[in-house]
């Protein structure tokens, strides 16, 4: 068993020891799970979206379980950029892997301000632009559904920072490839997809939607085939790397995304059920490569296109 498998990946200068990361919004600031395992074994962590000002988030109920899924309308609840820089970043000393910070806003100016402030933070390895949170009234969907807006936003943020920029795409669009190409044209270094799929659950006894915000974003294994298909389409249409996510629970799930064209994968909702799943996935990827005689996992990226 002395076969060496190379799991490392470099995405836009973000050097990861393996391609398994955590999805934004499912891992807090990376601190909540330090009690459960050595987070430093992951490829990278993506922390929950930060906005300029503190956001309280949406009224409860914010979550409801669905068949093999989780519908949520958290509404970007976060303490704001000042608190994040002053209080959270200093606590990240024990995290030695790349920290990717997700940022969100209502206007381009807000993203620009967040990017320029985080640009000065050594602890931050890259920015993920959350343009597709379905749970905020303003901005969110407007950005994510307009190719022109996505390009404009990406160009503006690029000017504000030298950090690598990952644009997170929404599945709630007519043609995700068009949006992906716009982000790439705007200078995005990588793309991550997919964000949650808009959905709703109705309480028939109360005769009204369950969630306080009525609509929510569906995540979890239920959306996995949608995500795999979108990664397959997008990764063939752009020249920048793609980080795939959507219902990943096992190494086999992760391999589906990699073979569909993802250079890295993110575990989201499944963290809630099995917090150590990312570690199991890393082991599983290695095992698969050994069994299949694959020396470098990069050989598998997009191998199903043929």
């Amino acid at each position: 068993m002395s076969i060496e498998v190379d799991l490392s990946i470099d995405i836009a200068g973000i050097k990861m020891q393996n391609p398994v990361i955590t999805a934004s919004g499912t891992f807090g600031f990376g601190l909540d799970y330090l009690h459960y395992y050595d987070v430093n074994k992951l490829g990278a962590v993506v922390v929950k979206s930060i906005t300029k000002n503190k956001r309280e988030g949406n009224p409860p109920p914010r979550i409801i379980e669905t068949p093999a899924g989780l519908l949520n309308s958290i509404g970007l609840a976060n303490p704001g950029i000042d608190f994040f820089i002053k209080e959270v970043i200093p606590q990240m000393d024990s995290i030695r892997i790349p920290v990717i910070v997700s940022i969100a806003g209502d206007e381009i100016e807000e993203y620009v301000e967040l990017a320029s402030r985080l640009d000065k933070q050594d602890r931050v390895a890259a920015l993920e632009l959350n343009i597709s949170c379905p749970n905020v009234k303003k901005g969110g969907l407007e950005f994510s559904t307009s190719a022109e807006q996505v390009e404009k936003l990406t160009v503006s943020v690029r000017k504000a920072t030298s950090l690598p920029i990952i644009v997170k795409l929404s599945p709630n669009v007519t043609d995700i490839v068009e949006i992906a190409q716009a982000a790439a044209a705007g200078g995005a270094h990588a793309l991550s997809l997919i964000n949650t799929v808009l959905g709703m659950v109705i309480d028939v006894k109360m005769r009204k939607p369950v969630l306080g915000n009525k609509k929510g974003g569906l995540a979890g294994p239920a959306i996995r085939p949608i995500a795999v298909r979108m990664v397959w389409d997008v990764s063939q249409a752009v020249d920048i790397p793609v980080i795939g996510m959507g219902g990943i629970c096992t190494a086999e799930d992760a391999l589906q995304f990699i073979m569909a064209g993802a250079s890295a994968v993110a575990v989201g909702t499944w963290n809630f059920v099995n917090p150590t799943a990312p570690l199991d996935i890393i082991d599983g990827l290695k095992e698969f490569c050994i069994k299949e005689g694959v020396k470098d996992i990069k050989e598998l990226i997009g191998c199903s296109w043929k």
């Binding site: 807090g28 009690h35 949520n72 809630f272």
Partner: peptide, 14 residues
């Protein structure tokens, strides 16, 4: 409350 993670990460149980 309805909870997803139970550890503070998801903010679901507001």
């Amino acid at each position: 409350a309805l909870m997803a993670c139970g550890v503070g990460a998801c903010q679901g149980c507001a």
